[in-house]
Design a protein around this nucleic acid. Sequence first.
DNA 1: AAGAATAAGTTACTTTTTGTAATCAATCAT
DNA 2: ATGATTGATTACAAAAAGTAACTTATTCTT
Lengths: 109, 109
Amino acid sequence: MEKLCPRFEKAMGLLSTRWVGLILFDLLKGTKRFSEMEADLPISGRLLSDRLKLLEKEGIVKRNIYSEFPVRIEYSLTEKGKSLEPVIKEIQDWADNHVTPEEVEDQNA
Amino acid sequence: MEKLCPRFEKAMGLLSTRWVGLILFDLLKGTKRFSEMEADLPISGRLLSDRLKLLEKEGIVKRNIYSEFPVRIEYSLTEKGKSLEPVIKEIQDWADNHVTPEEVEDQNA
DNA sequence: AAGAATAAGTTACTTTTTGTAATCAATCAT
DNA sequence: ATGATTGATTACAAAAAGTAACTTATTCTT
């Protein structure tokens, strides 16, 4: 019996939390507001709120409040968050090379 | 509004399916039988069965039956499955560099 | 001060997915 | 026949996710 690596397990647990990958993909393009992310991603406000809290707790996302009218709250990646870029990039490369248009269709069906 | 890449979305949907990452990690070490994977991973037979069916359907895992006694069924990665190695490796690298022992504890608590 | 406007959430409720344990199917040895 | 062994499947309870309406905080307009 081959034991799993606990760190890998932890990392994979985070990355495999539903929507986390897409949120990282979005934030790697730059700072975003809550409503922007809600528009970019196929995720409801309830879960976006949950996931941003999780990622903030994990030190991957930071939250900045600007007291303007209307209030502006910006989310961005911390250094730890940015360090996930190679992971996301590797997934993108795999997707470019191995995900067929039909598979994309299937998903949307 | 920045649109997501549909291929990335599809790839991430697969990779973020619970247990898929751990199954890939396990199978990258070589061919495995059902009961071995059940022992290696913190996953129940019901979901292991579901996930192997999913991965087989996606062309990532292949299933080989040997009609011995008792029946032996071996699971291994297809070429497409093996092509995910750089993704898993990148996650492992990130985990080695950014997951702290405390975080591993938290997860087990 | 009163009321509208806006962004960012939260709550209440339903549906889907997981987890757990018991059970089944096929095969062979006794 | 009975029991052992692997690889599942089924039934049911618990947890997580999806949806849409509601709330909060702030500030602008009048």
